[in-house]
Design a binder for these strands. Structure first.
Length: 425
RNA sequence: GGAGAGGUGGCAGAGCGGUUGAAUGCGGCGGUCUCGAAAACCGUUGUGCGUGCAAACGUACCGGGGGUUCGAAUCCCCCCCUCUCCGCCA
């Protein structure tokens, strides 16, 4: 959500910022609605002031036993006008909010201009893609291992579901545990096990509503299944005023994520790269405004460390203006090397949302002794997507016989197992 | 799912149709006292929005939304949430 005052103060700057998002100038239209809303509000408040004054007089006259009929009639007459002004004010307010809540965040200055993912800029690489005798994709490996079952998943639930069994199922659990342990014990994140179903206003707070409702699943009771733990973790501060000394808040959670994947029909249909349901370890930070840029770098490092420990080659990119998400001022994607696809694929996305979500959530902080509050900054990042991490491990550590060697960091979580091999038929 | 109780300022807790943005206590801030501190005492202490250069003024807010009334924290309706008991259940 944008600050209407900033738009009033500098409409040209606002239009320039939105232009970087590929939007036509909007400030004039917004300010026109804003202006007439304020004029209506002033008129309404003047009428209310008169009503309050007259009503007070009525009370006094009645107490002394006088006749207040004239004044009462005046207020009655005022009511129609007031109702009208109130309705108009509300309508203009709704219009303005609807307008503003549908606009994406301003981008950080250094975000490169670009149209789509082809204009993203690579920042750094780590590790060397392995030279493999034979290269199979994860779903070939998984099915040969007899532990990745798309047939039964489809029987149970249709397309875009996977069922893991045996050591692969355990590996999924091990990866999540490994990531949570790393973030909590080495990076100071607090583990959270949040609700997976949330209310309208919560999904609004992190910006998925109103614009992206079709990407989400909704229960018959009107709750939304979370598309990422970013939603419950960030909204923990919804409506709160936090003491400055408690910042930054660093939270992590491993949760299932539910996504309708509307609009991605035909994309990544094979395998478990793009599913309606997947596990992810999420990182969320709530910071003071001046800390968020440094926190963004730190968070990205935390996510990169996971891949370093797992010995998976990756690269880190900064998304261009056209590819940066709705709420974000700046986003780093980390892409893991997938030998089966001979490409780097997204496995983490770390965003600094500035005060954009905080405004929607009305999440503020107060410094000790200060009277005023300010909006916090919010950041979120995957640390990492578990399903995609499993794929990366399988493809990078595959052996010619179809078995998968486990990276050393995961073996303690696998009961010392060094290699996943095919189950006996 | 059934029955009941309740949601008021940072917290606790009064108020139940008019001068109540809201008693009182705690906490916070400022001061007196003190070498300093504690205690005591005095004063002060909500937020959003609008108008205004400012001082200031106005307005809204007692879970949320409607309604009754000249006037609503107070009366009525709907919704949400919390708690207690019963039922069911991982």
């Amino acid at each position: 959500m944008h600050d209407i005052r900033l738009i009033r103060e500098n409409p040209q700057a606002f239009d320039a910022a939105m232009a970087r998002r590929g939007l036509d100038p909007l400030a004039a239209q917004i300010l026109q609605i804003d202006g007439s809303r304020r004029a209506t509000q002033t008129a309404m408040q003047e009428a209310q002031a008169r009503r309050n004054e007259a009503s007070k007089q009525v009370g006094e006259i009645k107490r002394t036993g006088g006749n207040a009929d004239t004044l009462m009639a005046e207020v009655t007459a005022l009511k129609d006008k007031m109702a009208e002004l109130e309705a108009k004010e509300k309508e203009l307010g709704t219009q303005l909010d609807g307008f503003l809540s549908g606009l994406p965040n301003r981008l950080a200055d250094e975000v490169p201009l670009g149209k789509d993912e082809t204009d993203n800029k690579e920042l750094r690489r780590h590790g060397t893609p392995p030279t493999l005798a034979a290269t199979k994709q994860h779903f070939e490996l998984g099915e040969e291992l007899g532990q990745m079952d798309f047939t039964n998943a489809a029987k149970l639930s249709g397309a875009r579901f996977t069922m893991l069994t045996g050591q692969l199922a355990r590996l999924e659990r091990a990866i999540g545990n490994f990531m949570l342990d790393l973030h909590t014990s080495e990076f100071g994140y607090t583990e959270v096990s949040p609700p997976l179903m949330v209310r309208d206003e919560i999904v609004y707070g992190t910006g998925q509503l109103p614009k992206f409702a079709e990407d989400l699943f909704r229960t018959t009771t009107g709750l939304w299944l979370i598309p990422t733990a970013e939603v419950p973790l960030t909204n923990i501060v919804n409506g709160d005023i936090i003491a400055a000394e408690k910042l930054p808040l660093r939270l992590t959670a491993r949760t299932p994520c539910f996504r309708s994947e509307a609009g991605s029909a035909g994309k990544d249909t094979r395998g478990m790269l793009r599913q309606h349901q997947f596990y992810k370890v999420e990182l969320v930070s709530i910071t003071a405004p001046e800390e968020s840029v440094a926190e963004h770098e730190r968070m990205t490092q935390c996510a990169e460390t996971v891949l370093k420990r797992l010995e998976i080659p990756f690269r880190t990119i900064v998304l261009c203006s056209g590819d940066t998400g709705f709420c974000s001022t700046k986003t780093y994607d980390i892409e893991a090397w997938l030998p089966g696809q001979n490409a780097y694929r997204e496995i983490s996305s770390c965003s600094n949302c500035g005060d954009f979500q905080a405004r929607r959530m009305n999440a503020r902080y107060r410094s000790a002794g200060e009277k005023n509050t300010s909006f916090v900054h919010t950041l979120n990042g995957s640390g990492l997507a578990i399903g995609r991490c499993l794929i990366a491990i399988m493809e990078n550590f595959q052996n010619p016989d179809g078995s998968v060697t486990l990276p050393a960091a995961l073996r303690p979580y696998m009961g010392g197992l060094e290699k996943i091999e095919a189950v006996k038929a």
